[in-house]
Simulated assay, not measured.
Amino acid sequence: MINSTMVTDFLLMGFSDVLDLRILYAFLFLLMYLATLLGNMLIITATTLDQNLHTPMYFFLRNLSILDMCYISVTVPNACVNSFTNNWAISVAGCAMQIFLVLWFASTELLFLTIMAHDRYVAICQPLHYPFIMNYQFCVRMTLASLFSGLIYAGVQTGNTFRLPFCQSNLVHQFFCDIPSLLRLSCSDTFNNEIVILIFAVVVGGGCFTFIVMSYVHIFSTMLKFTTKEQRKAFSTCIPHILVVSVFLGSGSYVYLRPSVTSETIMDMILSVFYTIVPPFLNPIIYSLRNKQIKKTIKKVILGMFYLKKL
Rank of each mutant, 00 (worst) to 15 (best):
I43Y: 08
H173D: 09
L257M: 08
T114R: 07
I199Q: 00
H129S: 13
K233R: 14
C208L: 05
K225W: 13
E109W: 12
A234I: 13
H173A: 03
F281Q: 05
L61S: 12
G250F: 00
L308C: 14
F100K: 00
S263G: 07
L49W: 15
G155W: 06
S246Q: 06
L21Q: 13
T48S: 15
V261M: 10
S146I: 03
V202Q: 03
L19D: 13
H54S: 15
L21V: 11
F15V: 04
A46G: 07
I90N: 05
F100G: 04
A106T: 02
L53R: 07
I199K: 01
S188M: 10
F60M: 00
T114Q: 06
T227M: 06
L271Y: 08
K299A: 15
T143P: 04
S4Y: 03
Y216E: 08
F200A: 08
S288Q: 10
F248Q: 01
S272E: 10
Y254C: 01
R120Y: 02
L67C: 01
I197T: 11
Q293A: 11
F100P: 01
N63C: 11
F274Q: 01
A46F: 08
V7L: 10
M267L: 12
L183V: 04
A46S: 13
S251H: 00
L38H: 12
V74L: 07
S251P: 06
Y58K: 04
I66C: 15
F100A: 05
M6K: 14
T5Q: 11
M13Y: 15
P131Q: 01
Y130W: 13
V196D: 06
N86G: 02
Y275C: 06
